Simulated scan of single mutants.
Amino acid sequence: MTILLKNILVVEDDATLRTVIEDKLTKSGYTVELAVDGKDAMDKLHAELHPDLILLDVIMPRKNGMEVLEEMHSDINLSAIPVIMLSNSGQTADKDRAKELGAKDFLMKETTDMEEILEKVQALIGGGMPMSKQDGGVPSKSRFTIDLNETVPAQNADAKKGQRLLTVEDDQFLRKLFVQKFTTAGFTVKDAEDAKEAFSILENWKPEIILLDLILPDISGFEILATLKKDERLKNIPIIILSNLGQKQDIDRAMSLGAEGFMVKASFTLEEITEHVQKVLAAHATS
């Protein structure tokens, strides 16, 4: 007997978040289509993609989530598709407008985790399967396998226990994932959403490694990197750039300013980022 899996369209402009959401839904028994922004989503929907549900970001380039909802609401072929909004904005006006346009739920990225998203999806369209029933109880391994609860191997636990990590990332949902992942891996983690908060933390706390985004709301990651490398107390802390930027000039600039490494978010899983951090710390411990 052929089982038709429920299909979900994920509309999210952040590549790392798309990967995290896609992985969770796929491992939970759904098929997933991806769109990088609202225009991409509407092009797919008009090309006869008819998902069982849409997870829709609000703030996106070209066409935002509200504009997508408005267009779907006025289209008899699309208006019945259930939509869950995912946003960094918690404005009452946004929530009310989304509800008027037919959204089934409005989730704040800052306070929502993947388990809650999955529960909302299952409540609306059913389908999926518990982790214990997938592949005989063993989660499948793929390029995008992300397990936030994976424990640190016993032989490495003592070396990493309590090592201090600062992550500077303005996306609240992604920052929360980093904190959860590295805390689970045995690190002591502090997080900042911008340069002001990062420098405030660094006044009284010295991390052993820093994960630094480049595009931030106040000053850029490049400026933070340059400032830290001129500070006698902090200049030897390894800094890994973790960004959506990936142009050669961006990589060259970061490395010339003293970055330890440069990782493009869309190219690495959380597990791979964690492993790289551990390798950098191990190298510095023996140098």
Rank of each mutant, 00 (worst) to 15 (best):
I8K: 06
I8V: 15
I8P: 04
V11C: 08
E12W: 05
R18D: 01
T19R: 13
D23R: 03
Y30T: 04
T31W: 02
V32E: 05
V36C: 07
D40Y: 07
D40K: 07
A41S: 12
D43A: 14
D43N: 14
D43G: 02
K44G: 08
L45M: 11
H46I: 03
A47W: 02
L53C: 07
I54E: 04
M60N: 04
M60E: 07
M60V: 09
G65V: 07
E67A: 15
L69S: 02
N77R: 10
S79E: 03
A80G: 00
V83D: 03
I84P: 07
I84M: 12
M85L: 14
L86E: 02
S87G: 04
S89N: 10
S89C: 09
D94G: 03
L101Q: 02
M108Y: 03
K109W: 02
T111H: 11
T111F: 12
E116G: 00
I117L: 09
L118K: 07
L124W: 01
I125Q: 05
G137Y: 09
P139R: 12
R143W: 11
R143L: 10
F144T: 11
T145V: 06
L148H: 12
N149P: 00
T151H: 11
V152A: 14
N156L: 14
D158G: 05
D158A: 15
A159R: 08
K160T: 05
K161D: 10
Q172H: 13
T184V: 10
F187D: 05
F187C: 08
V189I: 13
K190N: 11
E193P: 00
E193Q: 14
A195Q: 07
A195H: 04
E197Q: 14
S200H: 13
E203H: 12
P207C: 08
I210L: 06
I210M: 10
L212W: 03
L212D: 01
I215F: 05
L216S: 04
P217H: 06
G221S: 10
G221M: 06
F222G: 04
F222C: 06
F222I: 07
E223Y: 02
E223G: 04
I224L: 11
L228A: 03
K229P: 11
D231W: 11
R233N: 15
N236F: 13
N236Q: 14
P238L: 12
I240M: 14
L242D: 00
N244H: 04
L245Y: 04
G246H: 10
Q247F: 12
Q247P: 01
K248V: 13
Q249T: 09
A254N: 06
G261C: 03
F262S: 10
F262K: 08
K265M: 03
A266N: 08
T274L: 15
E275I: 12
L281I: 11
A282H: 12
A283T: 13
A285Y: 08
T286C: 03
